[in-house]
Amino acid sequence: MEEDAFRAFFERHHAELARFAWLLIGERGAAEDIAADAMLAVWRQWDQARRARSQIAYARGIVANLAKSRIRAAVRERRRNMLFWQRPGEVEEGPDTAAVVDVRAALARLPLRRRTCVVLRHSLGLSEKETAEALGISVGTVKSLTSRGLADLRRVLGPPPQGPGPTRNGVPS
């Protein structure tokens, strides 16, 4: 009975969790690993997950935490590599803003909590309440992080392309 309930949960939500992880991490293989690890964690804690107000929110929280751990490990590794490969007195160049043209690259630049809120709200279409439940934070924090994340994305991506705007009495406004 428990196995059937978990199997149904897995089949219904695994692809969504993998997509969420991919939007956070940006690497398909790593995202699939995170989704699989999250499902394993949910299975191991199935009694607790079943008692949660929302099983999918519980699983999303696990994905977010696993992604955070993976990102932190990658940052530590990059720092070690930079220290090893950087010559004394060599100055590191700033980000190549011309290369930051797509949303995925812009998302990668956001702090993880902002990125997570933006992805849950605007890519997965969760409500503020669902996002708060998934991340174990308040609705107000979700609103704040999402707003800041969207502002950061606008800054990185620049203004939207100008096209024919709305007209008033036949005259573009």
Rank of each mutant, 00 (worst) to 15 (best):
I34Y: 01
I34N: 03
A35N: 09
A36Q: 15
D37S: 08
D37N: 12
M39E: 14
L40K: 04
A41N: 07
A41Q: 08
A41W: 06
V42R: 02
W43F: 12
Q45G: 03
Q45N: 11
W46M: 06
D47H: 14
D47L: 15
D47Y: 11
A49M: 05
A49I: 01
R50I: 04
R50P: 11
R51G: 07
A52E: 06
A52C: 03
Q55N: 13
Q55H: 13
I56Y: 02
I56V: 15
A57F: 03
Y58S: 07
A59Y: 06
R60Y: 02
I62D: 03
I62Y: 08
I62A: 06
I62L: 14
V63R: 05
V63T: 07
A64H: 09
N65G: 05
N65L: 14
A67L: 09
K68M: 08
K68P: 02
S69R: 05
R70H: 11
R72S: 05
A74Y: 11
V75I: 14
E77N: 11
E77T: 07
R78Q: 06
N81P: 08
N81A: 09
N81L: 08
L83D: 07
L83F: 10
F84E: 15
R87P: 07
R87S: 13
P88D: 07
G89P: 10
G89D: 09
E90Y: 12
E90L: 07
E90Q: 13
V91P: 06
V91W: 02
V91R: 08
E92S: 13
E92A: 12
G94Y: 01
G94F: 02
P95M: 14
T97S: 13
T97R: 12
T97I: 12
A98P: 12
A99L: 11
A99N: 10
V100R: 08
V100M: 03
V100I: 15
V100P: 03
V101W: 04
V103W: 04
V103E: 06
R104H: 10
A106F: 01
A106W: 01
A106Q: 02
L107G: 02
L107T: 12
L107A: 02
R109V: 04
L112C: 06
R113N: 08
R114M: 01
R115E: 00
R115D: 00
R115C: 00
R115L: 00
T116A: 02
C117H: 03
C117S: 14
C117Y: 00
V118E: 09
V119K: 00
V119P: 01
L120V: 02
L120A: 04
R121C: 03
H122Y: 12
L124Y: 04
G125W: 04
G125K: 13
S127N: 08
E128G: 14
E128H: 10
K129R: 10
K129D: 13
